[in-house]
Design a protein around this nucleic acid. Structure first.
Lengths: 244, 244
DNA sequence: CAAGCTATCTTGTATATACAAGATAAATGT
DNA sequence: ACATTTATCTTGTATATACAAGATAGCTTG
């Protein structure tokens, strides 16, 4: 027979969090409904107000409750829960499913920036910028093309790197710590060059992620990640997770 | 002349958070580097350990620091910072850019579930499920088609709703509080029916978001959101935001 | 020399206390 | 009857204190 050793109890604040989450999950407490105050919880659970407060604060931080001074604490409306998608590192993603990851460097050059690229990088038109085109492969099949334009002022030795060993993102993170990133996701039709790179025989729609990254010194780089719609998707997962 | 009333000072814990974030942003403290301990911060800022602790704890929760008992607190590695995309409510999104939002109900019926739909909803094959097809319009132009399959056990009166007033997502949230949601994003080529719905004259790639939502009682619904690649994109924004 | 112990640092949990500040309802005064 | 004040409840900030528990360096002992 297995008995739980109650020496290692779950912390009190975690028990209170669990109690609250259970009540919300079971619909005993509905959206926008008021939950017990700090003092009420403290009395119910025989803990100090600060401990009850911790449970409420952490659930508020997690977006499950909302609080307002003088009024009380309420079950957050689901609408306010934003649905998030994660953009993972593609090398890690391939390795996570036991695929064989490899990377081919197609282009590594310095070019003269035409207007849209210069604007996206925040440099002057016709100034020199670095450009790389890599193909990320899973089991020797192209999975994603990464075309990247880099601000040379912030990564002088970009062209000397071996990107089969260290991804551009990892290299850039090390030389110019990132402070901000913006993404947009679109569905596009690849042009013929992209079809070649992705080894596509017939045209098919592709997912395109545009990623711009900032460091404290300015815009570092501007990447275009293109994957065939039949091979790649972005996944997201949102859950009222069990409070540990 | 306008003078800042220093009666309303920013809280001490927020100042400490700002101090830490500034050091990370300016690269004074690098990835995985150790940051001052609770006691050191408490002394530097002349606050109690609990106040310093609050700053460290909240930054840890935000993913900017990592802590381990007995060792110390460290600057989180950027790699662990996941890049997130937000899937917003399309009605809100249209209204946010001052567009005229409207919704057309194309289909509202009960059907017999074929295998893939039955599996996705967790019901038996050939059992009755509800299906709705709506078009979300911006300025009278189709922006997104929402095809949704609903588990009738968890939303009996789904077919009686007026979805031009309340979106299916809002209705379902109210009758079966959601506990979990999963999304995948793909690039697809629309079939002819979808082209009609989206009023597309020539074929173009589309973004397709598949969303499955759970409540505590089981899978509630299964939605397919399709938008033309030329009109719709998902946006994401990740930042080491200024600590309030 | 090596194993084990100890001192000391770290974070983690928990309490009691104090005062500030927002919100609301009841009591009060005109 | 209406406006103002007051009391009371709420959350927010901050401190001082206590002990638990993980990690590590250095000391002690066999």
């Amino acid at each position: 027979m297995k008995t739980v050793d109650q020496h290692m109890t779950t912390p009190k604040f975690a028990q209170i969090k669990q109690f609250i989450v259970d009540n919300i999950r079971s619909s005993a407490w509905l959206e926008n409904q008021r939950v017990p105050s700090e003092n009420e919880l403290a009395e119910q659970f025989s803990v100090s107000r600060m401990t009850a407060r911790r449970a409420l604060s952490e659930l508020t931080e997690a977006g499950i409750l909302t609080r307002s001074q003088g009024l009380g604490t309420f079950v957050a409306s689901f609408k306010s829960q934003s649905s998030l998608l994660e953009i993972k590192n593609i090398a890690d993603e391939v390795k996570a499913r036991n695929g064989n990851y490899s990377c081919t460097v197609l282009v590594l050059e310095s070019i003269s920036a035409v207007a849209p690229i210069a604007i996206a990088l925040g440099v002057e038109v016709d100034s020199v910028v670095f450009r790389s085109v890599l193909v990320h492969n899973e089991n020797e099949q192209p999975l994603q093309v990464e075309e990247r334009f880099v601000n040379p002022a912030l990564a002088q030795s970009y062209l000397q790197q071996d990107f089969t060993a260290l991804t551009p993102h990892e290299y850039l993170s090390s030389v110019a710590p990132l402070t901000e990133a913006r993404h947009t996701v679109e569905a596009i039709m690849p042009n013929s060059e992209m079809c070649q790179w992705l080894n596509l025989y017939h045209e098919e729609p592709c997912l395109q992620v545009i990623r711009r990254t900032w460091s404290s010194a300015g815009i570092v780089s501007f990447a275009r990640l293109v994957s065939p719609g039949s091979k790649y998707r972005l996944g997201g997962h949102l859950t009222f997770k069990k409070q540990h």
